[in-house]
């Protein structure tokens, strides 16, 4: 590789010259992860399309007005946005080498916020099923339970990944592979935040408007 990797910049947080080895290794890895996120975005796009086309297919069952609880959803939104902020703090703490403890601290807060988000979400789902909005009820309910839990599953996967990374940090310290892992999980986490904003707008705000 004759390219001057020091000058190479990719979208998102760059580790830069303090981490030459990881910065160089990040070139293909981060680009690859961006490409994966593009593919994942298409996946969400298709599921959004399903939701929009099935919006009125309630088949006489309950619709958005009967099922959604904006208060709970607002709390979820705040939790997720806060977790994105704390992940941002974790990324900065890694870049400026504030030590493993601080990094793990920020990541732990992020994890707790993520778990709290999932807790509220599961509570939402259960109460919707309680109100007669289970996915078997109608095309609309099926579409809802495809889109929103798909995001939830992504967050769950992110939480498991985060735990794995913390485990790797405890075992190996902050080596190149762990750093790249944190950087990819950060992109993933922020990406899920953006998807959630779309869900909040398209599903909840539009559904209750």
């Amino acid at each position: 590789m004759s390219r001057n990797y020091q000058n190479f910049q990719y979208p998102g947080l760059n580790l830069g010259s303090a981490h030459p080895e990881a910065h160089k290794a990040a070139e293909s890895m981060m680009f690859g992860f961006w490409v994966f996120l593009m593919s994942d975005a298409i996946l969400f796009g298709m599921v959004f399309a399903t939701y929009v086309t099935q919006l009125h297919a309630t088949a006489g069952g309950p619709g958005p007005q009967d099922l959604y609880d904006i208060k709970s959803v607002f709390i979820e939104t705040m939790l997720l946005l806060a977790s994105s902020f704390t992940f941002g703090m974790a990324s900065l703490s890694m870049k400026y080498e504030h030590g493993k403890a601080q990094l793990i601290g920020w990541l732990t807060i992020t994890l707790l916020l993520g778990l709290a988000f999932l807790g509220f979400e599961v509570h939402d789902f259960l109460s919707m099923i309680d109100k007669g909005g289970a996915p078997e009820r109608s095309g609309f309910a099926s579409a809802f339970f495809d889109l929103v839990p798909l995001h939830g599953l992504h967050v769950t996967a992110g939480c498991i990944w985060l735990l794995g990374l913390v485990g790797q940090m405890l075992r190996y310290g902050l080596d190149t592979r762990t750093k790249l892992g944190v950087m990819r999980l950060a992109l993933f986490w922020h990406f899920l935040d953006i998807v959630w904003i779309a869900i909040f707008s398209v599903v909840y705000l539009a559904g209750l408007a």
């Binding site: 399903t50 297919a57 088949a59 996915p135 078997e136 009820r137 109608s138 095309g139 579409a143």
Partner: peptide, 16 residues
Amino acid sequence: LGFHYFTNALGGDPMH
């Protein structure tokens, strides 16, 4: 799981 994306009944849409 008995969802209704593409079924004939209960709001499924095979064209999708």
